[in-house]
């Protein structure tokens, strides 16, 4: 994967677990905090964390616009987990403002507060799958609308919990908190 330059948006959130998952997938990622650090990056992860905090921090230096522009011109693949997935999607009226890079509506804290967090099996579709993995859901979001051009990547019971559109992946759970690097590997191949 010599043409892959992977990075994790390192302003806030579960950055280190994603760095470890990327290392385990055979690449040497960098941390991105400022726009200039995004130069040359081909694959960026927006980690789980607090979506309002992340929104504040990446707006500060215009990273939000830069990420959107790079994705739209096709030069950046994006993986968002949990808060990252929230920021990548849409929502008609919920804060914070979203990037709208995937045609899904994402509802924050859709399962309730922390006492309702859980670990459960998720089933992968073609792409990263087939097979199942452990899904760690922490104050997790939920897709409330999925656009026609969006592919379903994983389900839990009958609910879609990971989606892909072009070179963007949004995932409601935390693959970086398990030892299963299959989503990271598949992402790096996009």
């Amino acid at each position: 994967m010599s043409s892959v330059h992977a990075a994790v948006l390192a302003l806030q959130g579960s950055v280190e677990p994603h760095l470890r998952s990327l290392h385990a997938s055979g690449v040497d990622p960098i941390e991105v905090r400022k726009p200039e650090q995004l130069a040359g990056v081909t694959h960026l992860i927006i980690p789980g964390g607090e979506s309002t905090t992340l929104h504040h921090l990446f707006k500060l230096h215009g990273l939000d616009t830069l990420i959107s522009d790079r994705v739209k011109e096709g030069s950046l693949a994006l993986l968002g987990t949990c808060a990252g997935a929230i920021l990548m999607g849409h929502h008609p009226d919920q804060a914070p403002p979203r990037l709208g890079l995937i045609d899904v509506d994402v509802d924050r804290n859709a399962y309730g507060r922390q006492v309702h967090s859980f670990v459960d099996q998720v089933e992968w579709n073609e792409g990263p799958g087939p097979g199942t993995s452990e899904g760690v859901f922490i104050r997790a979001p939920r897709f409330t609308r999925i656009g026609d051009s969006v592919n379903v990547l994983a389900r839990r019971e009958n609910e879609t919990v990971a989606v892909q559109q072009n070179r963007c992946i949004a995932c409601c759970f935390h693959p970086e908190l398990t030892t299963d690097p299959r989503l990271h590997r598949w992402f790096l191949g996009l």
Binding site: Q12, S14, E16, G48, E50, S117, I138, R139
Partner: peptide, 8 residues
């Protein structure tokens, strides 16, 4: 896991 999300 929630503690991990609060990092930074």
């Amino acid at each position: 896991g929630l503690a991990e999300m609060l990092r930074g």
